[in-house]
């Protein structure tokens, strides 16, 4: 008997009687989401900007990054300040990216997480390999909790997707928080609209 058959047979022999699967929707508040989002995001080391449109985002980023630094973005709006991201090429070629600018589909106010599916970054490694990350999120796409976020994601068939909350960090050395573990050293969140 293969290990697969052995394991499945053992599970069948040893499992308890069927227990029901609960379906719980926890009621939520819809007001004050942006304020909550900002408070939580800043609490975990992100910078939050409320902007009218991409022009403002570009201005704010231009103040912090030099044109000589490598900036990438899959967003057409940023073609004048960032190179595009080609899907098929070797991901190692992005090792020297200073700033990546991407768009999130959903924001979650309870934990400031931003849902970034593969289609929004062209290359999975982009939001991790860059030294700094900027993420745009539409104001009306911010929901209260992860439960609402997953009901928006629904049954979409992505190959990869990630919730990102704050810059990469660690507290492994004596619980002292250090931003910039392996991924981006900073995260800027632009709430658009």
């Amino acid at each position: 008997m293969s290990s697969r058959e052995k394991i499945l047979a053992a599970v069948r022999a040893n499992k308890p009687d069927l227990q029901p699967l609960p379906d719980v929707i926890i009621p939520v508040r819809e007001e004050g989401l942006i304020e909550e989002y900002r408070r939580v995001a800043e609490g975990i080391g992100a910078k939050v900007y409320e902007v009218g449109g991409t022009a403002e985002v570009k201005e704010l980023l231009a103040a912090s990054f030099e044109p000589s630094q490598r900036i990438v973005s899959p967003l057409e709006d940023f073609a004048d300040m960032a190179e595009g991201i080609e899907a098929g090429i070797d991901p190692h070629s992005f090792a020297d990216v200073e700033l990546a600018i991407v768009r999130a589909e959903i924001g979650v106010s309870e934990n400031s997480a931003l849902w970034v599916p593969e289609g929004n970054v062209s290359q999975r490694v982009i939001p991790f390999i860059c030294q700094h990350l900027a993420i745009l999120i539409n104001r009306e796409r911010i929901v209260p909790t992860l439960q609402q976020a997953y009901s928006l994601i629904g049954e979409i068939n992505y190959g990869y997707g990630v919730f990102i909350a704050g810059p990469s960090k660690t507290a492994d050395i004596e619980q002292s928080l250090v931003l910039g573990a392996h991924g981006p050293r900073s995260l800027r969140v632009f709430i658009v609209g």
Partner: peptide
């Protein structure tokens, strides 16, 4: 996941969520 990810990091370290919650479905 909308239940478990709300509990995991808060229970572990008091963070509202880990920085990255990565969903792998297909190889790139």
């Amino acid at each position: 996941l909308g239940i478990f990810l709300r509990l995991l990091a808060r229970s572990a370290t008091g963070q509202p969520i880990t920085t990255y919650s990565s969903h792998f479905r297909k190889p790139r």
